[in-house]
Amino acid sequence: MDDDVWARHANPWSGWSRVSILPLFAIAVWSRVWIGWWAMIPVAIVLLWTWLNPRLFSPPASVNNWMTKGVLGEHIWLARGKDRDLAHHAPVIRNLTISTSAGTILLLTGLAVLNVPMTTTGLAITMLTKLWILDRMVWVYTEIGEGSASLA
C-alpha cells in the first residue's frame, strides 16, 4: 500500500470493519458444505473486500482514537521496525506474530477438515493476537509517531 492508502486505512471505519474479514472468510469457506463450488463466490467477495477496504474510506479527521493510532503505528513499524529505538517491541511482536501464525494454521486446518472446535479456536487465537499486535502498534505510534506521522 502506498502512503495515500495507508492514510485511508487509518480511518477507524476501515480498521474496525477489517476485523470482520477473518470471520467472513471462515463462513465463506465453510459455505462449501451448503453450496459446493459456488462457495468460491463468497470467498472471492471476501478477498475483494480485503483489498478494497483500505481504499474506500477517507483519511480520518483526527488521530485521537485507538484504531487510527494502531494503523499508523503499523505503518511506522513496517518502515522502521529494525530501528534501535523500537527494539524493545520486537520480542513481543515476534511472539505475537508466531501466535497469530499458529492460530491461522489451526483456523485453516479446521476449515480444510470442517472441524468446528478447531476452526473457532484458530479464529479466536488469530483475531485476539492480531488485536494484541495492533495494541502494540498504538504503543509504537505513541512513542515514535505522534507529531511526525502524517495522514498523506
Rank of each mutant, 00 (worst) to 15 (best):
A39M: 11
F25E: 01
D85N: 14
D135K: 14
L128Q: 06
I21M: 11
I133C: 07
D3P: 08
V46H: 05
I45T: 00
L107H: 06
S99N: 11
W132V: 09
G110P: 02
S150L: 14
A90V: 12
Y141L: 07
V63D: 12
I45A: 15
D4M: 02
N53R: 00
S17F: 00
I93M: 10
I41H: 06
N11A: 04
G110L: 08
R55G: 05
L47A: 03
M137R: 00
M1T: 07
I35Q: 13
A61L: 12
L111K: 06
W34N: 13
A10P: 07
D4S: 11
R84H: 13
S62V: 09
G122K: 03
L48Q: 03
R55F: 02
I144V: 13
I27K: 02
A28Q: 05
K69I: 05
P60R: 08
I133Y: 02
T50S: 10
Y141P: 00
A79W: 04
N64W: 12
N64Q: 14
I41K: 02
I105W: 10
A90Y: 13
R55N: 07
M40I: 15
H9Y: 08
L56V: 01
E74K: 10
V46A: 04
P23M: 05
N95G: 14
L86V: 03
G73Q: 10
P59I: 03
T50P: 02
W51V: 03
T100N: 06
D85V: 12
T50H: 00
A102Q: 06
I27A: 15
W6R: 09
I144K: 04
D83S: 15
L24V: 03
T129R: 00
P42E: 11
R32Y: 14
M40E: 09
N115E: 12
A61H: 10
R55D: 00
N53F: 03
V19G: 01
P59D: 07
E74S: 05
T109E: 03
W34I: 07
D85M: 12
T109F: 15
T126E: 08
I144T: 10
L96V: 10
T119Q: 04
L96R: 04
T129M: 10
V71S: 07
G147Y: 15
R84G: 15
I105C: 09
G103C: 08
L48K: 04
V138Q: 13
T129Q: 00
L52F: 05
V138Y: 03
P23H: 07
H89C: 03
L123F: 11
W132T: 13
L96M: 14
W34R: 13
T119G: 11
I35Y: 13
